[in-house]
């Protein structure tokens, strides 16, 4: 499995993701420029990451412009042919704008940017990203966004539940999914979802910020390990 991290103008978590994938997890990782029109050298066993940041400044609506970057046509084709695509924070917003994932990310209900540790419960193990996670464990992973309130209409939410497409829900440190634990007002406390094909993942929290002992938190590393283990990739110890 090889990783490609897309750099949009204004991406600012690209280097963080490359550091964790390459240096921490020991994987092959390539920086991809938004003006590229094809994903040369990638096949469907690989993973394209859309990192966090403020693509094009997000002055219009988060992800709304990045979705029209030349590389996005290639990413959409790649996803449709079954390749893994993982969007984090701004990347999640871009995937929703590109209709690779249902729903939208609205402004936080307190109208402010929020950066803090939150807790997540794994809602399903039916995805490569979550297959090896413990559904009982509350994972401590930070968020940093102003537009992270997941919203979808009632029917879509029902479909997400029926198809087990909800990957993560905000919970308390004790693992209770409650209004109090919901940092941004997201529908059903949704922090991350996948598509019907279960190869496109989007999440607001930043696992790459919680993957090293020196930062005092390695819960995020479990997601990388799950993805790699599921596709049979070795992780150098």
């Amino acid at each position: 499995m090889k990783f490609g991290v897309v750099v949009f103008p204004g991406s600012n978590c690209d280097d963080d993701m490359i550091h964790v994938l390459g240096t921490v997890m020991g994987q092959e990782v390539v920086k991809l420029w938004h003006k590229d029109t094809e994903l040369a050298g990638f096949d469907t066993s690989d993973c394209i990451v859309l990192p966090g940041g403020f693509s094009y400044g997000d002055y219009l609506r988060s992800g709304a412009l990045a979705r029209f970057s030349p590389i996005m046509n290639a990413v959409i084709d790649f996803a449709r042919s079954g390749g893994y695509v993982w969007g984090i924070c701004n990347g999640f917003q871009v995937l929703c704008e590109a209709h690779l994932l249902p729903g939208a990310l609205l402004r936080n209900d307190n109208q402010k940017f929020i950066c803090k540790n939150v807790y997540l419960r794994t809602a399903t193990r039916q995805s490569a990203l979550t297959a090896k996670l413990d559904p009982e464990q509350a994972l401590k992973i930070p968020i940093a966004h102003a537009e992270g309130r997941y919203y979808a209409d009632e029917r879509t939410l029902q479909q997400l539940q029926a198809n087990e497409q909800i990957l993560f829900q905000y919970c308390t440190a004790e693992g209770v999914i409650s209004a109090e634990a919901n940092p941004n007002g997201a529908s059903l406390n949704i922090a991350g979802i996948c598509n019907e094909g279960r190869n496109v993942f989007g999440m607001m929290p930043h696992p790459e910020r919680a993957s090293e002992a020196v930062l005092g938190n390695t819960d995020g590393r479990l997601l990388f390990e799950s993805l790699l283990a599921t596709v049979g990739q070795e992780v150098p110890s």
Partner: peptide, 17 residues
Amino acid sequence: YEQYDSMVRTNSMGTNA
């Protein structure tokens, strides 16, 4: 301070300590 991104660049050792 929760309105500031205090962790981007993944070098902030104070988040959890």
